[in-house]
Each structure stands twice: as C-alpha cells, then as structure tokens.
Design a protein around this nucleic acid. Structure first.
Lengths: 122, 122
DNA sequence: ACCTATAGGTAGGTTGACGATATATGTAGT
DNA sequence: ACTACATATATCGTCAACCTACCTATAGGT
C-alpha cells in the first residue's frame, strides 16, 4: 500500500467523507504536503471499493451537487491498523539505525552489524 | 518514496552493505514480510545512486566474486530521517483516528451534511 | 549429480500515482 | 451580465516503481 492510499484510509478513519472533502482532509493530515489530485483520488476510491476496504455510505444531492460519501469497512479498519503499525515499526527501526554510532572508519568497512555469513573479506 | 526503497535506505543506515546482504537485511527488518527480489533491488539501487542518496563505497573481488558495497550519503541520511519522521506522523494520526469514538450510527449521518434532498447519483 | 546459498544482473508485465481534461453548480466580485 | 473561484465527481493517457521470471556464476553440502 502506498502513501496516498494510506492517507485516504486515514482520512476516513474517524468519519465518513465524500471525495472532495477527502482531498482537503488528506492535505490537512499531511500538513499541506500532499495535494491529492482527482485522478489519484477516484482511481484509489474505485480500487479500495473493489478491495472491500471502503464502501459507499451515502449518495445524496446537496445544494444541487451530487455527493457520494465513503466510509471505512471493518476490513478497511483492520488493514489501516495493520499498515500503520507496520509503518511505525519501519520508521522506528530507521531512526534507531540512523542514531546508532558507527565505527565506520576508512579501511574498517563491514566490521559493523552482523557478521556477513561466515565468509569474511579476503 | 515507497516502502521497498525506504527499507533499502534503512538497511544501509547503520553500515554499508552489498546487494545480496541488503536483500537479507530488508527481510530481517521487515520480520520476513518483505522478500526483495533482485529486480527490485538493482532498479532501486540505480535510482538511488542517480538521486545521490547512496554511493558505491567499495568494489572488491571476494572469493572470485565481484562485490559492490553501497553506503548512504549525507543526503540519503537526511532523506531517510525526514521520511521516517513523516511516516511516523502518518501512522500516529491513523491510529489516533482509528481509536477515536465515532458517533456515526446508522441513520445518524448528520455530521456529514444534511440527508438526501434529492435522488441518488447516476 | 543435484540442490542450496551466495552474488549480481536483465526483460517484460502490472500497478498505482499523476497531470490533463471534462462536466456542472454555487458564490463573490466587478 | 460576466468573470473567477470553490465545490464536486469522473475519465484518460502517461510514467515511475515494483514485481515475476529468468539468466550467469561460484562454493559447499547431500
């Protein structure tokens, strides 16, 4: 699952929303960094509907404009929770490794971390 | 940046590694869930080299086999840190929204605009 | 002889994100 | 009245990234 898709599910996690509102919500979640285009949005919505992760919660006409409201399904909720946990684990590991003090001096390559499967350098 | 790429940078964060070791390291980081194929690996390595996020740290011949060792550059280190922080924020937000108690009961769609004032969508 | 692990690489197909475009209504300014 | 912008949904073609499958080659185990 890619990030735009994850943001979409996240935007639906607390309340059902319609397409246009999702674009704004995704922008809000990502602090304005992700401006989702309609091409991405409706493509993703179709895909997620097909995967059963979201469903159409309502189809109304508000002020003369058609409005289709989407909601997370149980499966979508589970998928989002699993994905979020996984991403958190990767982020934690990345940060842990970045802060690890490396004794990587010239001529000392490969001495850190696990030994490379028995076969040392020549 | 997608997850395989992120895992690759993470695998290089604590020490330089060569291609095959990266596949194993990525598998270890992801708890065996991501078994990166060589097609993905070398495509990503080429891309990251082009972006200046990694560099070739060493080219040796070990036991008759060529071995190219890759390392994170300063830019790669920054990119990984930024990416990890971003992902953590998204994961946190997703989890926060998922645990939020929703007042979205059936027939209670009031928080999402007023109920249908017209017919459904085409 | 065969298999597995190590090590690196290419070819081709699929997926998903994206930009561009189309349609239509409401609101605000000039 | 006209123009511009925000709201709202939708399709199409392109492209980057990923993935499957395949290939070469050495070392060591069964």
């Amino acid at each position: 699952m890619q990030e735009p898709t994850l943001l979409l599910l996240t935007a639906l996690a607390d309340a059902p929303r319609h397409g246009y509102a999702l674009i704004q919500e995704v922008a809000a979640i990502s602090d304005g960094r992700v401006k989702m285009r309609t091409g991405t949005l409706y493509g993703a919505l179709d895909r997620l509907l097909g995967q059963g992760l979201i469903e159409v919660a309502a189809e109304e006409v508000v002020d003369g404009r058609a409005r289709r409201t989407y909601a997370l399904t149980g499966a979508g909720r589970e998928a989002l929770a699993a994905e979020a946990g996984r991403l958190r684990a990767v982020a934690t590991e990345a940060e842990r490794r970045l802060t690890k003090i490396r004794a990587m001096l010239p001529g000392n390559a490969g001495s850190q971390g696990r030994p490379a499967s028995g076969g040392g350098l020549s």
